[in-house]
Amino acid sequence: MVVEGLKKYFEIRKSFLETLVSRKREFIKAVDGISFEVGKGEVLGLVGESGCGKTTTGRVILRLEEPTEGRAFFDDIDLFSLNGEELRKMRRRMQIIFQDPYASLNPRMKVGEIIAHPLKIHGLSEGREKDTVLEFLEMVGLTPAEDFYNSYPHQLSGGQRQRVAIARALVLHPEFIVADEPVSMLDVSVRATILDLMMKLKEKMGLTYLFITHDLATAKYVCNRVAVMYLGKIVEMGSIDRVFEEPLHPYTKALLSAIPIPDPTVKRERLVIGGEVPNPINPPPGCRFHPRCPFATERCKQEEPQLVEVEKGHKVACHLAA
């Protein structure tokens, strides 16, 4: 998966009167020119706070949202030039797991139907759909599969629902999965189980994940590489080891030091930064992080830093680090 210069702007709807007064169209720059690659079998973490554009990125790549600009290739296929029928075929190879398992399952379908539906749409395992579904139910740990096959989503717990959603995504034997905060709505003790399951299935089925999360601690344990996003831009990208051991961008440092540690004996010097994520309609000029950055200089206010490689595989967009 290769993504180049991806942009996604959402136009702000204005009232009739406002359009009369001013012709200017305003956009929310949810994703503003990002490029990255995900190697086969890799798990790339897309990390950032709410509103940084990480979820939009995942949705645009899967064409659940149309891109404003940029290109994305999967296996050398230009994803953004596919037409309706080609896109539907492509969906077999690329799937998504949503954040909210309470909303992502059709409440009027039985679990069996939910998982069988992708098979029916793509005309796979005709006549043996039920066997395939039962096999996948067992694979995601929902046993006895026969019981779950006939139940409705509202009869299941959050963790069980997310297992159903995983089975639905995997039943088509996809190669690439966008996992959009797959555990953040679940209870603490259930999260680890679901992550564990996802990693086992990755090995078993040879999957590639784009793992979207706001939780750096989770990213550390499931991802090979991580890209940190701030206000629609990637500010730092590199291997998990390097980014966590030696974060270069001040924002990454602040994020890391903000994570609460479940160990009261650890005393840390915190890099506490003030303020909150600004409005993505009119992001600050220069480096988008400069108003909150404790190290900001004049140059940061005027010139936007590019993402440059500072060591092998470790890129950062900061004038000070580069």
């Binding site: 659940l64 969906r91 949503f98 749409i121 088509l172």
Partner: peptide, 24 residues
């Protein structure tokens, strides 16, 4: 979200209307 999920598995609009929207 479940309608978007249906789109993600490649369902066509008539199917989505029949199996996802109408029953709800």
């Amino acid at each position: 979200l479940y309608v978007e999920a249906a789109r993600a598995i490649g369902a066509k609009s008539p199917t989505i209307m029949r199996k996802y929207v109408l029953p709800n």
